[in-house]
Simulated assay, not measured.
Amino acid sequence: MLTFATAIFFLIITPGIGVLTTAGIGAGFGAAAGARFLVGLFIGTNAVAIFVISGIAAVVLANPVLGPILLYGSAAYLLYLAFRIGWAGSKIAFVERQSAPGALGGFGLQLINPKAYAVNTTLFSGFHFMPENLSMEIALKFLIINAIWIPVHLTWLWAGVSLKRLDLSDRTQSLINKGMALSMLIVVVLAAWPREGG
């Protein structure tokens, strides 16, 4: 069980779309907006885990029609989120600062987050510590995952909010937000690269 918890910590703490978006929304829009987004992200990550355990994710992603639709739809949504975060603190005239994506945005993000599926597949298909009682093992895994997931994501939100509270110049805030948006895009490309390569 300790090995499982260690694996969760390192899989979750590494920068992925979820934590980068959470930090970006915290930096661009503040703590309340970040917390709303985080609630949706939390519900979404547990939904993804259920999809993985039940086999629904494998069936849907293997479908020759639905698979590509979800792939391109997720790419478009991630680009949209990166754009919103990248320009959240800028004063560019043609980009109006709007409200951050809320709980529904967080939920939707996890449903299309490639890292969420990869992490949950790894955690639930491996690291068996109660093979004699699979149902109890799955329940304990949910408990352990969420016990680590919540503080890790709150820490990333705090980091983003801390940047906002520094009262940086508009230019500096804009550069930070654009850096976070660029980081999101890099993570998406890295997550998608192995799939395209084979």
Rank of each mutant, 00 (worst) to 15 (best):
G106D: 02
F129T: 06
P101S: 06
P101R: 05
P151L: 07
L134E: 15
L78R: 06
A116H: 00
L41D: 00
E137M: 07
W156G: 03
P114V: 08
T122N: 05
F129V: 05
G55R: 06
L66K: 04
P131C: 12
A88S: 13
I85P: 01
W156L: 13
P101L: 11
P68Q: 10
G86P: 08
L140D: 05
L41E: 00
L66N: 00
N120S: 04
P131F: 12
A139D: 07
I85S: 00
A75Y: 10
S90M: 09
I148N: 00
I50C: 12
F83P: 01
L79M: 15
L70Q: 00
L71K: 11
P114K: 09
N46E: 11
H153S: 03
A139V: 07
G106F: 04
L109I: 05
M136Q: 11
I50V: 11
K91A: 15
I150R: 06
A57M: 03
I150K: 05
F42E: 03
F129Y: 08
G89V: 03
K141W: 11
E132N: 12
L70H: 00
F107D: 01
I138L: 13
G126D: 15
P68H: 13
R97K: 14
G40F: 02
A49I: 15
V59T: 12
S125M: 13
Y72K: 07
A49R: 07
L70M: 12
L104M: 13
L81Y: 01
L134R: 15
W156H: 12
K115F: 08
G106M: 08
S74K: 08
F51P: 08
